[in-house]
Amino acid sequence: MGWLSDSLDSIRTLQIRHVLTQIVSLGMIVTSALIIWKGLMCVTGSESPVVVVLSGSMEPGFKRGDILFLHMSKDPIRAGEIVVFNVDGREIPIVHRVIKVHERQDTGEVDILTKGDNNFGDDRLLYAHGQLWLQRHHIMGRAVGFLPYVGWVTIIMTEKPIIKYLLIGALGLLVITSKE
């Protein structure tokens, strides 16, 4: 009877090892994704290196669902650049083009006015009440690169959460059941 219990034991330990391997590889996937994201943050100097365009205010240049790569350097901001900025009281950052820049002689502080290419007027209506200019601290980054359509994945996932849960469930199931 000894050989039977031996083989049972070996099967049991195998399964535990298998489960452990799966957990470790899952952890590796999650951590490497995090490493890539944080690494991008370090390289670009922007707290969100990649943004998805949500509105059509920059058409035909950027459409809804396009992806922009941001870069934040110490270089001064100049007219014509496309910047991503946060307005107090607004949750979602805006991607628009700089049309006016006033840079102080003594302090080097800047007053910036932006406008969407596809909008009729400038952005003063979008700013906080009574705000006429954007300052440096409102700017999250400037757009340097562009990739079309990829952002639709995140738009669909945020607007239809059920698809997100289905996708996560399916992936989880695949990871657990895969034999390799």
Binding site: P60, G61, A79, I99, K100, E103, Q105, D117
Partner: peptide
């Protein structure tokens, strides 16, 4: 190339500001 965004800016210096950049006219070439 998808488009070229071209604009004409007025740039000048004043006692208060080292640089003033003001877009006067812009155009999208598709």
């Amino acid at each position: 190339t998808k488009q070229v965004f071209v604009f004409l800016a007025a740039e000048y210096e004043t006692p208060k500001n080292a640089l003033n950049q003001i877009s006067l006219w812009d155009h999208i070439i598709l």
